[in-house]
């Protein structure tokens, strides 16, 4: 599945009328596949609900940006609030879903998406840890293998954690997995049979049901 197909697949699982935060990067594309009639309200952690699509041309307003600092628009019924309120909304369990990218997710739902632990990297976390533990459901969108062919769904994360046991579902280019205390389960396989994906992951040391 290509990234846009995957974004469309994630969008189908977002319940109507839910409050949703889409992480920077790939998850942002989910917005393009949400049905306007679904009543889904997008939250951006820099202080807005009912964020609209990207702004272009003379609709660009430097005071109206998303968490990725890109110019966006407001939809009717939008609301603005300050940062402490915006993150209270997350931690307080008011956001239904957030969709995040990841370097690694463990079978038990640990998330690593803020640092690869490289010794020369400048640490930067932004709102990743707040989102990971705040939203009621955390979906991850990622490729199942990295560019060097290493699995990103793993028995336990080797990169520094963003949050422990916080991810409930992982959407990859190959399959959708549920993760949690009981381990990883294939929920839906796309182009390759589930058994083949299980064998492939078993070879990396990960047991998937």
């Amino acid at each position: 599945m290509n990234p846009d197909q995957l974004a469309a697949r994630v969008a189908r699982d977002i319940p109507p009328h839910s409050y949703v935060n889409l992480g920077i990067g790939l998850p942002t594309r989910v917005a393009d596949h949400l049905n306007p009639e679904s009543g889904v309200v997008l939250h951006t952690e820099n202080g807005m609900l009912n964020m609209g699509p990207a702004a272009t041309g003379d609709r660009i307003d430097p005071d109206l940006i998303n968490a990725g600092k890109q110019p966006v628009t407001e939809l009717p019924g939008a609301a603005y609030f300050h940062h402490a309120d915006s993150f209270a909304m997350m931690r307080g369990g008011h956001l239904d879903v957030c969709v995040l990218g990841a370097f690694q997710v463990s079978a038990t739902g640990d998330l690593a998406n803020w640092s690869t632990g490289a010794p020369d990297a400048i640490p930067a976390v932004g709102g990743a840890m707040d989102l990971a533990i705040g939203a009621r459901q955390v979906f991850v969108m990622m490729t199942l293998f990295d560019k060097r062919g290493r699995p990103k769904l793993v028995p336990s994360c080797t990169f520094p954690l963003t949050g422990a046991g916080c991810v409930s579902r992982v959407y990859t280019d190959v399959a959708v997995f549920d993760v949690g205390p009981e381990g990883a389960v294939i929920r839906e396989a796309f182009d390759v049979p589930a058994e083949q994906i299980r064998d492939q992951l078993a070879a990396t040391g990960l047991r998937v049901r």
């Binding site: 300050h82 020369d120 976390v125 709102g127 840890m129 707040d130």
Partner: peptide, 18 residues
Amino acid sequence: YRAGQVELEVVPQGTLAE
């Protein structure tokens, strides 16, 4: 930062606000 001329404390965004 790389020259060691500024100290950095990284705080999660919501924790910073709170």
